[in-house]
Design a protein around this nucleic acid. Structure first.
Lengths: 342, 342
DNA sequence: TTAAAAATGATGTACGTAAATCAAAAATAG
DNA sequence: CTATTTTTGATTTACGTACATCATTTTTAA
């Protein structure tokens, strides 16, 4: 049987009240007594029963998640993951309020952050936009002791407590290595399709991609990146045009989320008898289908569920003033080919 | 505020005792009353506070994990994962007893299974060996209502409740696709190094690998598989010999866990100025180093921690007579290249 | 040495659920 | 309609911890 506070009290030769004072850092305990109790805890290997403690505390964690009303599959999945976490969170005493903000609107986002800070919130998770008003809002929040975690997209040079998302330069490097190796010694051009290069994630991915391409695959040249803005017809026409303009284009890296336009373009390209080795981001029903049909060769993925759960763990830890185990919270970049689809 | 049993009682117009009878399927409730209570639960969206329930029940789950005393890195990691799960399991009221059995010994394993069944156990997880006495032991256990989960290695045509491990044929197919594509249009021979082809996992991986190779990469021929038996010097000499004997060998798939002998052999090969595109299994300090230095090109990995946690979740669910969400318990095959290492 | 301050003990209530007991009411059988 | 069985209610204790109150002891300052 695992030891309880009673066992600690008996072992240390003090009362339950004193053990409680030590355990919860309440005042009124002599140093000598505190040490006695701590030694008893050590000796018996006592671990606080968190479930019972939370029950007694009646504590709950009202968290706020600020999400952009983007319409792409990944954001939908992220939102679903938050909702699901909220449902099962009843057990862990977390309750999440989702706040919607227009996509790519820095002012709206900073307003939403400040507004969330005025509510009864134990911590805020936010899909960040790189902009000074946002940084300023985050600074005000953290200054007031409200934990802030960036989700999916980070906010550099800010006072946010943690970033729950993938290493985007590494994602770009991964794409470069795979594309380069799949094309082995062939010579040719590589297209790059981004959502928008004004978004930090996409910038970072492109930087990592370019770096490895330049260093290891001199046989491949990168074409100027296209910006599809998550817009189906635009992405499609951009890709089609690039394929036509560059007959030597043999590879493509799509580092955004506008997969459906891309898929349409690749279907047309295939119909014309050309195959482009393609690496895209984010697993969804559409991208999965493209991978299975061979239109995509690789999908790099960040697991929205993992990111949300990690964000919640970190917020909880910060709210309790506990340390975060960085290694445990690192979000992996998943590589999927048609053979290892989940 | 989330509703409690008291709220249910008030809503249904019955006493607390009756609600308790309904909730815990105790006898002595009229059908009409039971329906009233269930409707109140539905209406208020009541969810049992599992933490409080476990606290009140004082229930604990004594599980047994039967592991082979293999000395390879993966088994060590698996064991560590079990120990870690046991430590943090104090909170979830699971306590795990580890039983060691000699590796590859079917009789010892079946004895251990039956012995575990005699102890006070709420469920058994076992790294299975394909053999009839093992199947028979599992049958006896499940017949007596003891949940049995196979871990890492499955037991086909048995009465085990669940398999917590990866899809090994899919792992082999993944290796084949990556190896084939990395070698693009080159012609040559592919070596295969197994631990032992009498082990089901390795058989399955080899089958999947051969299937895709034959179907999609006629430019590559598979050499007869070598058996390294997790033995460092043996694996090393086998690989060195194969490299010397087959000057056209340009790729290698190591589907076992004997990575260190393989790494030694590849170092020698590299010293001779030859590079072999290599895919190996299981991430460890050694294999990671080999990946970073370019000796390995890809590592396929199964996360021991995930497998152990999944096994525990399933055992708990089975012990409570609850359903298992299959999709949630699927163990992924991770692909690592040097750019996406965690 | 005494008064004040600090430290400790003793005790009770609460959290949400489980489980038991005994009394009371309702339904059913004869 | 009574006797019996079944169903329901009321109440209590327990799980392990948090937190508050008040009494008592010990320590420190004057």
């Amino acid at each position: 049987m695992r030891p309880t506070v009673h066992d600690i009290a008996a072992e240390a030769g003090v009362s339950l009240a004193t053990v409680d004072r030590v355990m919860n850092a309440r005042p009124g305990v002599r140093e000598k007594t505190r040490v006695k109790v701590e030694q008893a805890i050590e000796k018996l290997g006592y671990v606080r029963d968190v479930a019972a403690a939370n029950l007694a505390k009646g504590r709950s964690y009202p968290f706020t998640f600020i999400l952009p009303c983007n319409e792409n599959a990944f954001m939908a999945e992220l939102r679903a993951a938050v909702i699901q976490a909220n449902e099962r969170g009843r057990i862990e005493r977390t309750q999440i309020t989702i706040v919607d903000v227009p996509a790519f609107d820095a002012d709206a986002l900073s307003d939403a952050l400040l507004a969330a800070g005025e509510t009864d919130t134990a911590g805020i998770a936010v899909v960040a936009i790189e902009a000074d008003p946002v940084r300023e809002a985050v600074r005000k929040l953290t200054e007031r002791g409200i934990p802030v975690v960036t989700l999916v997209s980070d906010l550099e040079d800010s006072t946010r407590d943690h970033y729950a998302g993938v290493d985007n330069p590494a994602a770009g490097r991964t794409a470069a290595t795979l594309l380069g190796r799949f094309l082995d010694a062939r010579n040719g051009a590589i297209g790059v399709l981004a959502g928008s290069l004004s978004v930090r994630d996409h910038q970072n991915r492109f930087a990592g991609f370019s770096q490895i391409m330049a260093a290891h695959f001199p046989n491949l040249t990168i074409l100027p990146p296209m910006e599809g803005r998550d817009d189906l017809p635009l992405a499609r026409s951009l890709v089609c045009e690039a394929v036509d303009t560059h007959p030597d284009m043999i590879g493509l890296y799509s580092l955004g989320a506008g997969n459906r336009g891309l898929i349409a373009a690749l279907e047309e390209t295939r119909a014309k008898g050309r195959e482009i080795v393609t690496i895209a981001h984010e697993l969804s029903v559409h991208s999965r289908e493209a991978l299975e049909s061979g239109l995509f060769d690789v999908i790099l993925n960040q697991d929205a569920g993992h990111e949300v759960r990690s964000a919640i763990r970190v917020l909880k830890a910060k709210a309790d003033g506990l340390a975060v185990i960085a290694a445990q919270e690192r979000i992996r970049i998943d590589i999927f080919i048609k053979d290892n689809l989940p």
